[in-house]
Design a protein around this nucleic acid. Sequence first.
DNA 1: GTCCAGGAGCCTT
DNA 2: AAGGCTCATGGA
Length: 300
Amino acid sequence: MRFEIEGKPPYDFYLTMEKNFAIRRSERAFGDTFDGKKYFFALREPLCEAEVSFTGRPEEPVFEVELFADRLSSREEGRVLKKASMLLGVDESLEQFYALAERTELRETTERLRGLHMIQFNGLFNAIVLGILLQNAPVKRSMEMFSFVSERYGKRIEHKKPLYLPLSPEDLQKAGIEDLKEGKLGYRAKYIQGLAENFDKTLERRIELMSTERAKKELMRFDGVGNYTAEFALFGSTHRGKRRYDVFPIDSWSLGIYADIFSIREEKREKAKALCRKHAEEHFGPLMGLAFWYVMMSTF
DNA sequence: GTCCAGGAGCCTT
DNA sequence: AAGGCTCATGGA
């Protein structure tokens, strides 16, 4: 089945794909992939695979979505299409953010990256797992850890591209700590196991309905999920049908770039993070997540 | 050998 | 509130 979705301009599909996948580096096993032309993702509920290609122009974006499944009710089709829209952010407007950035040192970056959107995580649970694995490790190693987890405990879909279903808590519940440590997860193994053990089936839906502040508190109840991981996971999540950009998951990597762009000088890392966050709140308000993302993307 | 990566948690001042 | 220490692991 083939469907067409019209998006909000500007949407530079290939730029979006190129940048979003560049940051993943040595990923092998993710819930989505890009082959240079099409974006692929798989869903668990309803079980299906989707291919998304771009037939419009950045100022008049049109997406073509093809679904592969045994059978889908029209209601389920609608859910998959809605998911595709959320993953790609086809309905989000960037103009308000650009207007803010225009007046700051981020101007050159937003002009250069006009039409760049963030590709959302395929599921909140996946996002938290990734966030935990990103802690205190080089990205390359984090991606290896994530790939290990996906390949060992996730479900691979037989499709044109190597594709994995988004990880579920059940996938990881059977993983022992020692088992996880074979993937060099180190102290993160116990966090992952605890998360899988305690991630309530209804949590994703409940989080989606919560304010960001409330959702953050809820996520930080998990051992190993602090401010960064909670905001990182929410950054790629949904709030009442919209994406959340009222977070600022700055890390030791983006910190340097952000501070550099805005000439924020402070030696001590935690202080520098606080200063950058304050700056982002003041200049971008509830869109500070986009500022973080554009800063991050500016290095690729 | 030392330092530090897309942190978090706990314990002291 | 702010600063120190520890937690695994591998690459520079």
